[in-house]
């Protein structure tokens, strides 16, 4: 193969630039499995003691309950975001709704809005609805904050489905709902899958909302758990354990990325035709 330019200078530059990140990750991994004497850079012994928190709740508290809570949190949020976006995106893309343009621009604006600025309003609504300090409340807030993004992405995917396919379905005698479910939905499956992944990962890494909207509740998500572990004033503070918990927390996200990275790229390649 002939090239217009040599690849190695670019690869070298990128290597140098990403080296700090790479070294950081490498040491994170190495430190969780080893002990390093004070003052030294290199570890001197292999150990699994920093992973003991997985089986021994006395070290930092039980980790499995926050893990389950986080899975529940992310999964419910994912279900809400995907189902609402799949239907709302279709409606905005295909149906002659009143105020369609207004709703569309509204969604764009909301997508651009930093969610922190809404927190006081959200707090008041939750308080009023009696959902403050509850897992359901946080899930609803998190899901609705992600909806503008989800709806917009799904609308893009629906827009890319040819109009004739839908009309052919109607002409074949199917109702709009059956056309949507049996003909259109399979066409936007890549979009649904990547949106689901995004929602799950987004929920998994959420820290701020549970912290603010459920400060005194009895549930804890992994990010809050990690925060507790990282408190240097606590009696159980151990930097290597903190690193291990951090790695444990990141693993599912990394795994999802590795498994589905091609699908995730879809969202930027296929469906953002506005």
């Amino acid at each position: 193969m002939t090239r217009n330019f040599a690849a190695w200078p670019i690869i070298l530059l990128l290597t140098v630039l990403s080296l700090p990140l790479f070294i950081m990750y490498l040491f994170l991994l190495v430190d969780t499995f080893s002990n390093t004497p004070p003052g030294s850079l290199l570890p001197n012994e292999f150990t699994l003691e920093h992973w003991r928190f997985l089986i021994d709740p006395t070290i930092t508290g039980d980790i499995w309950k926050p893990t389950l809570t986080t899975i529940l949190f992310s999964a419910s949020m994912m279900v809400i975001v995907v189902s609402v976006s799949a239907t709302a995106g279709y409606a905005l893309s295909r149906l002659a709704l009143p105020f369609r343009r207004f709703v569309l621009s509204g969604i764009m604006v909301m997508h651009a809005f930093p969610s922190v600025t809404l927190i006081i309003g959200v707090f008041l609504v939750l308080q009023f609805a009696g959902l403050y300090n509850s897992l359901i409340g946080v899930i609803l807030v998190k899901a609705s904050l992600m909806l503008p993004f989800g709806i917009w992405i799904m609308k893009g995917f629906y827009d890319a489905v040819p109009w004739e396919i839908e009309m052919a379905g109607v002409q074949d005698g199917a109702s709009r709902f059956i056309v949507w479910r049996r003909i259109i939905l399979p066409q936007v499956k890549p979009g649904l899958l990547s949106l689901a992944l995004f929602a799950f990962i987004d929920g998994w890494s959420e820290y701020m909302l549970p912290r603010i909207l459920a400060p005194s509740s009895d549930f804890e998500v992994l990010s809050m758990y990690l925060n507790t572990v990282s408190d240097p004033n606590s009696s159980t503070y151990n930097f290597n354990i903190f690193k291990s918990v951090g790695l444990f927390y990141t693993l599912p996200v990394l795994a999802l990325f590795v498994l589905f990275q091609n699908r995730l790229m879809n969202i930027f390649g296929g469906g953002t035709k506005g």
Partner: peptide, 20 residues
Amino acid sequence: LPSQKRNVGVVFQNYALYPH
């Protein structure tokens, strides 16, 4: 009557086959 209740067969210009 809506399209579904008219017994009409249509061949579209791009055929509009269901790809899946």
